[in-house]
Design a protein around this nucleic acid. Structure first.
Lengths: 190, 190
DNA sequence: CGAGGCCTTGACCGCGGTCAATGCCCGTGG
DNA sequence: CCACGGGCATTGACCGCGGTCAAGGCCTCG
């Protein structure tokens, strides 16, 4: 397991070294090459990944149109959460936009950790809470802000991504067409 | 505590009678009269309510405009979740649309239950999961469906609410103006 | 050099928001 | 009992945001 994630877990529950060491056998490393999928829509997503390096995005396809829902940068969690939780086919895909390395735990192993030690329950709760709050903020933004406001907000929150992510993915994430995003950008930079 | 909720809790973790009995001292009953608030925006929401009877709605106000985010019917959970989890001022209000009765647990007592018994951790996880999945579906709907499609979907999912809830709240929940909702209704019933 | 991927630009237009008027229902008080 | 007023739904007129379609420019890569 990775140092950064050990730190993260420790910040969520008071683990000692033994507990971390025992748990580390439950985690695995997975490489996902650019354009390949970590999860696919229609299949049950039975793993949870912690991004160590690279960059991924979640998106679903409705009426032939892709909608990007999240970008997973190093330090964040990648999973089709609803599918993972309910063991139903996932709605969304998770695709690597660059070669990415993830620390992965299977659903099975996670449930085992939950049973072994309540502290992992707490970690699990925390991640879902995190997911939830992200989603809530995103929804409020989509519902109450104009396209321009949403773009400005994105600029503040994810300045790095503007450089690396194709604009049409960002447009999709922001709930607008690439053309509209292009025009928003124009109005800002005159 | 209420029979319906005991059943619910039991479906989420294998409680025995003693555990339920011990926990029941942590719960309380709260009456919220029509138009009064269970939670208020700007204050920290430090309780979680299980609706026994009545009807409530969550909404937040941005730029002087209300947006309804959820309706809480009997059996569902009422709390400003992000505020509850992070102990930050709530963005949303929860207001009773009819006289309502809730079984309430304080944050403090919930944390105590979490510590006492891992099964309650599981219950807590389940509720957040529920909240999360609801939110996700709502977001997908808002982003990928037209106003008319969203209304039709609402009709299927919450036929009861059409009778009892003022249409302008439903419009707000569906992310459209009351006028638009009115026109959608017209196109359906000719 | 050509091809394909991505971004921009322009023209057009439709969904749905805003504003304002009207209708309807119902509770309240004269 | 009726008059009034307020809350809610509907309707109409208008219009702007942002989507769609199509074309053109600009990369990079084979």
């Amino acid at each position: 397991m990775d140092d950064a994630f050990i730190k993260l877990f420790r910040s969520l529950a008071p683990f000692n070294d033994t507990e971390i060491a025992e748990a580390s056998t439950c985690f695995d490393t997975e490489l996902v090459r650019k354009d390949e999928y970590f999860c696919k829509a229609g299949r049950i997503c039975d793993k949870m990944g912690f991004v160590r390096s690279g960059l991924l995005r979640s998106f679903y396809t409705i009426n032939g149109k892709e909608t990007t829902t999240f970008f997973q940068t190093p330090g964040s969690v990648a999973t089709a959460l609803a599918s993972f939780l309910r063991r139903k086919p996932a709605l969304e895909n998770i695709q690597a936009m660059e070669d990415s390395e993830l620390v992965v735990i299977s659903r099975e192993n996670l449930l085992r950790l939950y049973n072994d030690n309540w502290k992992w329950q707490q970690v699990g709760r925390s991640f879902i809470e995190e997911y939830y709050i992200n989603m809530e903020l995103r929804m409020i933004s989509l519902q109450s802000q104009s396209a321009l406001e949403r773009y400005k907000k994105f600029l503040k929150e994810y300045p790095e991504l503007i450089q690396t992510v194709p604009l049409y993915y960002i447009a999709s994430y922001l709930g607008m067409s690439p053309e509209t995003l292009s025009r928003m950008r124009k109005t800002i930079y005159d």
